[in-house]
Design a protein around this nucleic acid. Structure first.
Length: 208
DNA sequence: AGGATGATATTA
DNA sequence: AATATCATCCTA
């Protein structure tokens, strides 16, 4: 059952765009106190040093500091006041680059994922009958997958994938075709084709 | 199409 | 200190 976890050498081995592609087909795992959840990475985006869309573009601030850590560091940030995004830091230390994980194909702990998706922070559970979240919808999008996986910035930011409760296993899926396209939800650097996903995979957030 | 929601970076 | 800006998601 245990396939082991990818270590620093894997994350450092490729440049950021290539790592974004190599991570496709690998399994992201969170072994949490509430239970284990996991999913195959099916969609990623690369954010580079000289990339206007990157948090590390022309600056090194407290928020983006984890991006300057060694490859395999976890970088989590808050977006739009409500959602969090999960990144795998890449390249050498002191070079601020990372790969955003945008969608997962759930493999384990789907019941727990479903429960987490329903919980509104600090409040009650969302009206149940109103919306039924399908397996396809559980992790289809960067904010969704972070919530379904029980990942929190306050707890997991700046941890490393080579140790700790969150890790990535070697590829489970192989032989698929990778599509590259423009990145989603940005206003600058829009022309850079640094989004990658598994062709025809239903769990990818959005097609183009 | 528009609103939720808060940290962050930038300007003053 | 004030403000514009978000690597998003949900509801209408």
């Amino acid at each position: 059952m245990s396939r082991g976890r990818l270590s620093h050498s894997f994350f450092q081995k490729y440049n950021t765009c290539l790592l974004a592609q190599k991570l496709l087909g690998c399994e992201l795992v969170h072994d949490s106190p509430d239970g284990l959840t996991s999913g195959i990475i099916v969609e990623t985006e690369a954010y580079l040093q000289n990339d206007p869309a990157s948090h590390a573009y022309n600056r090194r601030t407290v928020r983006s500091e984890p991006m300057y850590g060694i490859a395999g560091t976890i970088y989590i940030y808050l977006i739009y006041g409500m959602y969090q995004c999960f990144n795998v830091v890449s390249n050498q230390e002191d070079i601020g680059e990372a790969v955003l994980i945008r969608a997962l194909q759930p493999t384990r702990g789907m019941d727990l994922m479903y429960l987490r998706r329903l919980i509104v922070p600090g409040k009650i559970i969302r009206p149940i009958q109103n919306k039924k979240i399908s397996n396809v919808e559980l992790c289809r999008g960067p904010g969704k997958l972070v919530k379904a996986m029980g990942i929190e910035r306050a707890v997991h930011n700046n941890l490393h994938l080579s140790e700790g409760p969150i890790f990535i296993t070697p590829p489970m899926k192989e032989g698929f075709e990778i599509v590259s396209s423009l990145r989603v939800g940005i206003n600058v650097g829009v022309d850079l084709p640094y989004r990658y996903y598994i062709k025809d995979n239903v769990y990818v957030s959005k097609h183009s």
